[in-house]
């Protein structure tokens, strides 16, 4: 390809309503090639519907989608080999082993056996090749279903809540898999309701609520743009609230049963003042997170 690199995904003002409910209410975004793009938001925010419209599984009421330069709706067979989709439910053939699942899905794309086995290794299930799908753990099933989405070496990968309902260890294992996929040059579009996870993984995120995108940028930019104070948490009794308020740069200080929390927009001088007093034991520094961004945008606590 020459000239300007085409974006992998362009969604322009897409809308979809079910009766009275506007599930997707004018969503626009662009995903560059090789980008790891996250769509975040609480359950019912419209993430999955948005993803399905982009994948070509659903028709938008209005708006336009371009996927790898083509229109995904109606079902576009020329496009299908270039996209990989992991659905929210783990859709497997009954009673087949991990290896058989991959070979079967691979054959739908005319992919040879070696590629299929390579994907099994990629997601770390090489030693589970002969285990039946219904005997895998939740995390293993998720990894297998990602391998099935990747089996034909697509350019763009769509993952719908791949880390939902996994224990922390399994989630971290999956993060490694996702990073490895990005390292192979794939474009990844994924949804999650874990804001902390998106902050770690994504190049850029779109925060969705009630069918609309509230903010879209890199996680760091979003957090910085919030201009939220840094929270410094000390053990209760390390210093008094009055002493804390006296420190230059401290905006608020309040105490509860176990700790003293100090808010500041100038963490460096505050921390050095605390160090001088020798009160750094058990000190924690919390900067703003995407959850604070969500709170700021919606006025509501984030609840996944």
């Amino acid at each position: 390809m020459t000239g300007v690199r085409m974006p992998a995904v362009v969604a322009a003002d897409i809308r979809k309503s079910y009766g009275e409910l506007n599930a997707v209410d004018g969503v626009s975004f662009t995903v560059a090639e090789g980008e790891f793009f996250g769509i975040l938001g609480p359950n019912g925010a419209g993430k999955t519907t948005t993803l399905e419209i982009v994948e070509g599984l659903r028709q938008a009421d209005s708006g336009h989608v371009t996927l790898l330069g083509e229109n995904p709706w109606p079902r576009n067979p020329a496009l299908l080999p270039r996209i990989g989709v992991q659905l929210q439910a783990s859709s497997f053939f009954e009673k087949l082993t991990a290896k058989e699942q991959l070979l079967t899905f691979g054959s739908l794309y005319g992919v040879g056996d070696t590629t299929a086995m390579e994907m099994l290794e990629l997601v770390g299930l090489g030693d589970k090749a002969d285990v039946r799908e219904d005997r895998l753990s939740g995390g293993q099933r998720q990894r297998l279903s990602i391998a099935c989405a990747l089996v034909h070496d697509p350019d763009v990968v769509f993952l719908d809540e791949p880390t939902a309902a996994l224990d922390p260890q399994a989630r971290r294992n999956l993060w490694d898999v996702l990073r490895e996929i990005q390292a192979r040059g794939k474009t990844i579009v994924y949804t999650t309701h874990y804001l902390d996870e998106a902050e770690i993984l994504c190049d850029r995120v779109a925060i969705m609520d009630r069918g609309r995108i509230l903010a879209m940028d890199s996680p760091a930019t979003l957090v910085r743009g919030l201009d939220a104070p840094t929270q410094v948490v000390l053990q209760r009794g390390a210093i008094s609230t009055e002493q804390a308020r006296a420190i230059n740069g401290v905006e608020h200080a309040y105490e509860d049963d176990v700790s003293l929390t100090i808010s500041t927009r100038k963490p460096a001088p505050v921390l050095s003042a605390l160090a001088e007093r020798g009160t750094l034991d058990g000190l924690q520094v919390r900067t703003a997170t995407l959850e604070d961004v969500f709170l700021h945008l919606t006025g509501r606590e984030y609840r996944a």
């Binding site: 599984l57 079902r75 299908l80 996209i83 989709v85």
Partner: peptide
């Protein structure tokens, strides 16, 4: 019924068959 419920049909529909 099983393939629709488990979204296997959907998954197959996303493949060029």
């Amino acid at each position: 019924a099983a393939w629709r419920k488990k979204q296997v049909l959907r998954r197959i529909r996303l493949a060029p068959v």
